[in-house]
């Protein structure tokens, strides 16, 4: 088995819009080792989110190879990708994307419905995940009854509850004030440090990037700078 979570090999992504072909990125190579914490930065439209979607198997590449733990994922069909995402990837979104009609615990439980766990085990996992993000006492609260920071922590609990190897975070602090954003970033760092999660964060927030082990700057479809933080 490879030591890499993700390997991109000559990956290109192009859109056809009318008669025009728009290249998002071209011949991109990238290695993300297991347990890495990577921040991907860049101006709007640079392809950060598209890259994250490609890594998460919710967008297809035009050419090239996407490997996860040495296995091609760009060749999987839709059903296989769904199962692969359920087993390996947790998503965290800028606007939390919680289900408004479900309580915190029910939201967190969603990925476990894709597993063979019984209801008792699912409840136990949900409680553990909510405790980990400090919301053990808010399990019965609905998203509308929680602050933005609390909702994002519920989203993190949902992302980690099925113990995926990778967390893909799209602007996880983009909708939060500084203090709350820092709390969320601390949780992500903790998950990387103590729970061995590979964390990939797309962000405009330099503070978010500071929490990462390294930062990749994407501009006009190529990585123009790679910074390894101390």
């Amino acid at each position: 088995m490879s030591d890499f979570s993700f390997q991109l090999r000559k990956v290109s992504k192009r859109f056809v819009k009318g008669k025009e072909t728009i290249t998002i990125f071209d011949n991109l190579d990238l290695d993300i080792p297991a347990q890495d914490y990577v921040a991907i930065m860049g101006p709007s439209g640079s392809g950060k989110t598209t890259l994250l979607n490609v890594l998460g198997g919710i967008d297809q590449v035009t050419s090239g190879e996407v490997l996860f733990n040495g296995q091609r994922v760009d060749t999987l069909n839709e059903g296989q990708l769904s199962r692969w995402r359920a087993a390996n990837v947790g998503f965290i979104f800028q606007f939390y994307n919680l289900m408004p009609v479900l309580t915190a615990a029910q939201n967190v439980e969603l990925p476990l419905l894709l597993t063979k766990l019984g209801s008792k085990d699912r409840r136990r996992h949900v409680a553990t995940a909510l405790d980990l993000v400090g919301l053990g006492d808010r399990s019965k609260h609905y998203p509308r009854e929680m602050s933005g920071g609390q909702q994002q922590r519920v989203a993190i609990a949902r992302a980690i509850v099925s113990d995926p190897k990778v967390l893909l975070c799209d602007e996880p602090t983009g909708d939060l004030d500084r203090t709350t954003a820092d709390e969320v970033l601390e949780i992500l760092a903790l998950l990387n440090r103590e729970h061995s999660k590979t964390v990939i964060v797309v962000t405009h927030d330099p503070e978010a990037a500071n929490h990462a082990k390294r930062t990749l700057h994407l501009n006009k479809g190529i990585f123009v700078e790679r910074t390894k933080l101390a």
Partner: peptide
């Protein structure tokens, strides 16, 4: 739409 897309991203099937 967003809820459906979120569930699909999590791994829910079509």
């Amino acid at each position: 739409g967003t809820e459906i897309a979120t569930l699909r991203a999590i791994g829910f099937g079509g």
